[in-house]
Nucleic acid binder design. Structure first.
Lengths: 132, 132
DNA sequence: ACCTGACTGAGAACCATTATCATCTCGGTC
DNA sequence: GACCGAGATGATAATGGTTCTCAGTCAGGT
């Protein structure tokens, strides 16, 4: 195992993410920290996000638009995303009570986190397509 | 509902995807069709991939590298991906027997497909980090 | 003070994806 | 058969999030 302590900057970033009411993109985080007592360059934000992810402290998911959204792993949220307009809706409760991998599945991998995402068409886009 | 028939080109694309032994990126598909009897421009590949996705015929997932991989939805595969090197490993069997959403969850969305992905550290990267 | 190694960030580079727009295709119509 | 219009197509440019580069900074040890 690598050194398990976080640097001050990493901790700062993780705290910002935990205090946010929702997932944030790398750009969001950069903008948020921009005016804090200790700004953080974009490159550093992404560097630390990856390191936090490798420690299993942060998870990320990708929107259809391509941007990545980050959240602390202890927050076990799942989403339903529209494949047309990209709207995402937070599910009220996790549809899988416990997701576990067998040793045979992991095959030596050290499992850190998972993402479960649903995709569909939102009411607006269904209507719009029905019209077209 | 929109017209449920596929155009010849869309069908061509979907067939290529179904015949592939694994997921393919947009670039992969373009390269594959490049030398077929009927090449398809990159723009058209992406256009049709999105349309197929909106019909629920194709699903896509994003690698940490940012590239999107496409697969037919009837293939119900899940993966374990290394957050460091990006290696992905196909799980032998689905760890969730049935994933269902309640009406309350969907809230008017027309659910099309889902993705369940696991992330961790592969044996090689664990070793490499231990050394570093 | 000096050295070393890790950390940082501005800006450039990268690259998958998307937008543009002129061209092509193919019905239906006269 | 010529014509027309709507949709489909693809070469190319543009976009934009993410990563890379590299010179500057900092901290700790000597």
């Amino acid at each position: 195992m690598v050194d398990s302590r976080l640097t001050a900057r990493q901790d700062h970033l993780l705290t910002a993410l935990r205090e946010a009411d929702s997932e944030l993109s790398g750009q969001d985080l950069h903008a948020r920290l921009r005016h804090s007592e200790r700004p953080m360059g974009l490159a550093t934000v992404y560097r630390h996000l990856r390191q936090l992810q490798q420690r299993g402290l942060v998870r990320c998911r990708h929107l259809p638009s391509g941007e990545a959204l980050f959240a602390p792993t202890e927050r076990d949220d799942h989403h339903l995303t529209c494949v047309d307009c990209g709207t995402t809706r937070l599910l009220a409760h996790c549809p899988v009570h416990a997701v576990e991998l067998t040793d045979q599945d992991t095959g030596g991998f050290q499992a850190l986190f998972h993402t479960l995402e649903f995709f569909g068409l939102c009411p607006d886009c269904q209507r719009r397509q029905g019209r077209a």
